[in-house]
Simulated assay, not measured.
Amino acid sequence: MPSPDDAFQYAIWRVVPSVERGEALNVGVVVYCRRRQFLAARVLVDEARLRALSPDLDVDAMRRHLDGMVRVAAGDPDGGTIATMPQSERFGWLTAASSTSVQPSPIHTGLCGDPQAVLDRLYTRLVA
């Protein structure tokens, strides 16, 4: 049975349209709580803000990429082979520095009683 407060981890996903310029826009957050068997992500692709950073950015391709990451977090079969992995491995994959255009923040930790509420709060505060 989960304790009132269980450890969780999270990372912010950032779009970095131009590595040379170093500008980034927070576009999503992923939260993992092993004890509660919770892994979920939320994204927001704000086209106007992205275009302000990079007028030539392929926003539709970026949206598809991020939607795929959300599907992987959810374990959705449409997310491909990685979506079938255990939650801990998916979280590791989702927080690995594997793309130059979508970059994860360092992993942060905390304690929570409701990881969905944490995801909602982090999304509102850091992304939306």
Rank of each mutant, 00 (worst) to 15 (best):
M1D: 13
P2K: 13
S3Y: 15
A7P: 15
A7G: 14
Y10W: 02
A11G: 05
R14K: 12
V15L: 04
S18W: 06
V19C: 01
E20H: 13
E20M: 11
L25V: 01
Y32V: 01
Y32S: 06
C33L: 14
R35K: 15
F38H: 09
L44M: 06
D46Q: 02
E47N: 10
R49N: 13
R51V: 11
S54D: 15
D60Q: 07
A61P: 01
M62S: 05
M62Q: 00
R64L: 13
R64F: 08
L66D: 02
D67L: 12
M69N: 09
V70T: 06
R71Y: 10
V72K: 11
A73F: 03
A73I: 02
A73L: 05
A73W: 04
A74K: 13
A74G: 13
G80P: 14
G80D: 07
T81G: 15
I82M: 08
T84D: 13
M85W: 07
S88C: 03
S88T: 12
S88L: 15
R90E: 11
G92S: 08
L94I: 03
T95P: 09
T95K: 03
A96V: 03
A97T: 10
T100H: 01
Q103A: 00
Q103Y: 00
P104D: 11
H108A: 09
H108L: 08
H108S: 08
G110S: 05
G113Q: 11
G113W: 12
Q116C: 06
A117M: 13
L119E: 03
L119G: 08
L122I: 04
Y123M: 05
Y123A: 05
T124A: 12
L126H: 04
